[in-house]
Design a protein around this nucleic acid. Structure first.
Lengths: 229, 229
DNA sequence: ATCAAAATTCTTGCATACAATAATGTTGAC
DNA sequence: GTCAACATTATTGTATGCAAGAATTTTGAT
């Protein structure tokens, strides 16, 4: 997997803005001012505007004609809907993985699982977050459907800020770890129905999960409603 | 649902190019020349380039740094993968619809179903295509998950050229019609498992379906491999 | 003081200009 | 004739300029 040099301001700025939005550096509904941002990045408005177009594609910003570009947080309802879909997509990946997984896929999952355990033992949330992502990404790839894996990755990325908050809930990491173990075992056993059920349960926002998400949601969005930058 | 007057060249061009690509007016891998297209649309390169960024988001074109913008057809393998995912997404929509559908959703489906029958009776493939889309869109909406409905709609749109070809296969329309009937009945009965199974079967590319798709795929892409415009 | 209309300022959308890189063509050595 | 080095052309990426629309402020009537 070679890295393409890609020295294009448009791309650099798109990535930077994506990161900033996902990290919550802007308020919901905040207008992305072209001139101040172009000063901030040291570029002209042209690459900025191109980056806006790309960002609109992933739904991170909304382009309103003759009004400007506005960052758009999904509503709590949107997030719940996205988690519902994510749960099903993950379940689907897992079902395929249980049937199609190859040896290298198994190793990738095992490595990620080990990293999860290590991060949990050290109580390192950041590391757990990364290892968790890698575990799930390994399942996506093991599905043997690259389009599906891409969609799953995209959605996972979009839900990043909200999942992150869920992990901070007391005891969630230990529970997550146990779930990972069951998921992995079911995949290795080739029990696609079990994998599907475990993954759906692992991702879904139900019961306490919903309360945790709602609390986390308010924590993320609540503090930055008025404007910044 | 008010329409916003969106007099922006970038948007107009994005839509036009999207249509042209989906309709197969470009060859696979063809470079979209900025100057000739800007002449063709009577605009400068700026809105064109912005449209390219937006199109890249939906995967219709590939932006290669310092090389240009190239239309990208999915490979046959890609298409099969996309249909697999589409089948699952539709099944999911149907499952939700069976449980959550309201009276207006039911009416929308019935109307679309009626239109399908009418188009089939008149052997009007174009009309059948539209009514078919409306029937499926009604199911998406009936799912009660707007995010899911949006994703389904997006994927449906992307598969448009390939589905169109499948419908031309002899007897396919009659079969499709019968399947629609069973899907509708199962939704009304609230039998989510049956809906799911029927939809999966309806969409999936398996057995003869695969052969039909492959033949259609070669028919679409085969003729335009070398370049146009 | 309140509100509407006009004037002003700000911002977006687009065209154009120009620099940097890639593609193409040409020349010359062997 | 082949191929490499150089020159030329074409094309992309970005900055800048300008016009049209939106937001804001000012003005004036009541």
């Amino acid at each position: 997997m070679q890295e393409i040099p890609d020295h294009r301001r448009t791309d650099r700025i798109r990535e930077a803005l994506e990161e900033m939005i996902v990290e919550g550096r802007f308020a919901d509904g905040e207008r992305l001012d072209e001139v101040s941002l172009s000063k901030h990045f040291g570029v002209s408005r042209t690459p900025l505007r191109e980056a806006f177009q790309a960002l609109a594609g992933s739904g991170l910003v909304e382009l309103r004609a003759r009004r400007g570009t506005f960052v758009r947080f999904p509503s709590l309802e949107d997030v719940v809907e996205m988690f519902d879909v994510m749960a099903e997509i993950e379940a689907l990946c897992g079902r395929y993985a249980a049937r199609r997984m190859g040896p290298s896929d198994r190793i990738a999952m095992q490595v990620a699982l080990r990293d999860c355990e290590k991060a949990a033992a050290e109580n390192d949330i950041e590391a757990y977050y990364r290892a968790n992502h890698e575990f799930h990404a390994a399942i996506y790839r093991a599905s043997g459907n690259r389009f599906l894996a891409g969609e799953a990755e995209r959605l996972h990325r979009r839900l990043k800020p909200f999942r992150r908050l869920q992990l901070r809930v007391r005891g969630r990491i230990q529970a997550s770890l146990a779930e990972h173990g069951r998921i992995f075992d079911a995949i290795v056993a080739g029990d696609d129905a079990a994998v599907s059920a475990e993954l759906r349960r692992h991702i879904a926002v139900q019961g306490d999960g919903f309360a945790d998400l709602a609390a986390g949601y308010r924590a993320t969005t609540g503090g930055k409603r008025t404007g910044a930058m």
